[in-house]
């Protein structure tokens, strides 16, 4: 009984961290730039395959993670500065552009990988297998995802709250024109946030490969998850996104262990409940 509950909570926390890694960037980009980036899930999926390829080629798991983050940051910076920036203020054009990018990445990946799922051939031995403290069984790789997620959350929190660029990001989420009028280079900040947010998605995708495998479906699935979590947490709220991801991941796995047929829709049930009780989301309007 206790071991099942512990496993559900560990798996739930691990899933929460994957949710957080994709949703935090989605939330920051939406909050600062008013962009619903439909390609964000594709960056998650592409990060998974970039990492899978790099690990297959080099045998280095950490190089795979790093490559996924960097590749998605570069791709996103190019997309933002080369395409989206020209259409800022035109919501329909931004939607069509990001939808187009999503389809290009999706079908490109489908051509290359088909419908099959892939996982790492090798990961470091210390994150393979399980830990067994008493009756509890803990999957080491899921523990690794939890640690990685908390490190990233801490890093982003420090970035937002302890740096001038973070201050500009939070100010920009409140009132971007006023931030400009005070001397903030919001154009550069937009690109940076777009790149960092997409790098987090790529890193999340890379981390997912060792658990839920890389597949083309990841893109669309995780886009929906990110959207729901951002709504639950409150649009543009980093802390809200973190708490929402925690809640959503743990609830999903508790259902998966105890009432499996409710696991799939649990995220959207949670979203509906939050929208009914607190339409602005858990921490709507808070940017820290």
């Amino acid at each position: 009984m206790i071991s099942t509950l512990a496993s559900a909570l560990i798996d739930g926390l691990a899933l929460s961290m994957l949710y957080f890694m994709i949703a935090s960037g989605f939330s920051l980009i939406f909050g600062l730039e008013d962009i619903v980036n439909f390609a964000h899930g594709s960056f998650f999926m592409l990060g998974a395959f970039v990492s899978y390829e790099v690990v297959s080629y080099t045998g280095s798991f950490y190089l795979g993670l790093l490559a996924a983050g960097i590749a998605m940051a570069i791709l996103a910076a190019l997309v933002e500065s080369g395409l989206l920036r020209r259409k800022f203020g035109n919501e329909m054009a931004i939607i069509m552009l990001t939808l187009g990018i999503m389809y290009i990445i999706h079908h490109g990946a489908l051509l290359r990988y088909g419908a099959a799922s892939s996982t790492y051939g090798t990961i470091p031995s210390y994150i393979q297998g399980t830990l067994k403290p008493g009756p509890i069984i803990i999957n080491k790789y899921r523990l690794f995802i939890i640690v990685l997620g908390f490190i990233i959350a801490g890093g982003v929190f420090l970035f937002l709250n302890r740096t001038n660029v973070g201050l500009i990001v939070r100010a920009g989420i409140d009132d971007v024109d006023m931030a400009k009028a005070l001397g903030a280079n919001t154009k550069r900040t937009f690109t940076l946030v777009f790149a960092v947010g997409s790098a987090l998605a790529g890193l999340g995708g890379a981390a997912a490969v060792g658990w839920i495998y890389a597949s083309v479906d990841l893109g669309l699935n995780y886009l929906f998850f990110a959207f729901a979590i951002v709504v639950i947490g409150g649009l543009g709220s980093f802390k809200g996104t973190f708490y929402a991801a925690l809640l959503a991941g743990i609830i999903h796995e508790l259902f998966a262990y105890y009432i499996p047929f409710l696991a799939g829709p649990s995220l959207f049930i949670l979203m509906a409940a939050v929208l009914l009780l607190k339409p602005e989301g858990l921490l709507g309007g808070a940017t820290q």
Binding site: R170, A171, D174, D175, A179, L182, G285, A286, Q288
Partner: peptide, 21 residues
């Protein structure tokens, strides 16, 4: 500005720091 337009989710100190960029 006339309508203040402070950054409502930033602290007073952080608002002032935005004036010293």
């Amino acid at each position: 500005p006339d309508s203040a337009r402070i950054f409502s989710n930033l602290t007073v100190e952080e608002n002032l720091r935005m004036g010293t960029l």
